[in-house]
Design a protein around this nucleic acid. Structure first.
Lengths: 214, 214
DNA sequence: GTCTATATCGTGATAGAC
DNA sequence: GTCTATCACGATATAGAC
């Protein structure tokens, strides 16, 4: 009973190491992708050595899957949690856009990471993501939209198109930043300033288009 | 003078090998990215061996730069050549969107490749792309937009936002396909069918928003 | 749990025969 | 121009001392 303190100390130390590696891996994987980095690099970023990475996570691939799934969950939850409220559909959409821009401003590498790594032959692609649609369905947003369509409130377009319109105008400004910035010679400062206005523009544009009675 | 035929034969054979490698490299690089493939894989895809790849292109990096720059040029030209016509600004935009969807339907991996690889530390990023803005400026589209804004024809928003609105709604549906498809359980057939309608939707949405007198 | 040392493999690139 | 053989290196992963 008296050796309780050293045990506890050991445990928190272990957890700290594991966590340090996980967070280093998150940074490195997100910045360079699975193929663009090595286990050594992750270890170094965490201030550890290679053996420790494999001790805690068995392999680079398993560590990656852990990071990827966590990122995917963050990404999805940030998108859909506003749909669970009981606001009007228009309010939900406005707040959704607001939240997306907030989240993506804080994590601009996220959509590129998710989309870029999803197609890789790692098994993170198809099958592992079946929970997503259910997670969205649980919020009731699909019903909200269908009801609003039947009531003639919003345009009767396929759910896919509604999702694409919302996601295109929220995610592309972050996804395509390196390209657009180079193509138009835009500074970081100007780009980020403009994003604040851009959010307002696209909100108005999308709401005006999707909702029929203006 | 009589050995002209064998020389000519030799040259076309050389060019054919070089071209086979270049086209194989294009396929492989576009599908897996620079970090995601090996020189050996490209050689195999071309039906050649590693030595030949380095004989013709000196290194994996140089071969990649060649492919990347060509892709970037294709990508840009497909986007801007309609701006050189003397149509009305609205027509230019409508045709621009039409062309983008056509081009991206034929080359859906293109935007992901460009955007994904541009951030890599390969030197393909910043400095090498200064020609792009000039290329766009040459078409006169920047002047068109400014004139239309001064005439009160279209909204007075920053050029960056106009570009972002157009590109978001054209490119994201292709860029984000793997993600959206998985998130909403959409089949390839349905996705591609819906894209045809989606093009109409976003055209109407963008034109209605950007142009003031409807 | 943490380290050093090492096994095994695949990579980019080249040398040298033909 | 084309091939085989090879070098030097860095990768993942593990064994074994502490």
């Amino acid at each position: 009973m008296l050796n309780f303190t050293p045990n506890s100390l050991k445990m928190t130390q272990d957890l700290s190491t594991e966590l340090k590696i996980k967070e280093a891996a998150k940074r490195v994987f997100m910045a360079k992708g699975f193929d663009g980095c090595s286990t050594r690099e992750i270890a170094k970023e965490a201030g550890m050595n290679v053996a420790l990475v494999n001790y805690y996570f068995r392999s680079k691939g398993q560590l990656f899957q852990l990071i990827f799934r966590a990122a995917l969950e963050d990404f999805m939850l940030s998108m859909v949690d506003v749909f669970s409220t009981d606001l009007s559909l228009e309010s939900k959409m406005r707040i959704f856009i607001e939240r997306e821009y907030d989240f993506l401003t804080k994590h601009p590498e996220m959509p590129g990471f998710i989309i870029g790594e999803m197609s890789r032959a790692d098994g993170c692609g198809a099958g592992n993501m079946y929970w997503m649609k259910d997670k969205i369905a649980e919020t009731g947003i699909f019903n909200d939209i269908q009801k609003a369509q039947e009531a003639g409130e919003i345009r009767k377009m396929d759910l896919l198109s509604i999702a694409l319109i919302l996601m295109s105008n929220c995610h592309f400004p972050f996804l395509g930043k390196p390209f657009v910035q180079n193509a138009l010679h835009v500074s970081d400062e100007h780009y980020e300033q403009q994003l604040v206005l851009h959010k307002q523009y696209v909100t108005e544009m999308m709401i005006n288009y999707l909702f029929i009675n203006k």
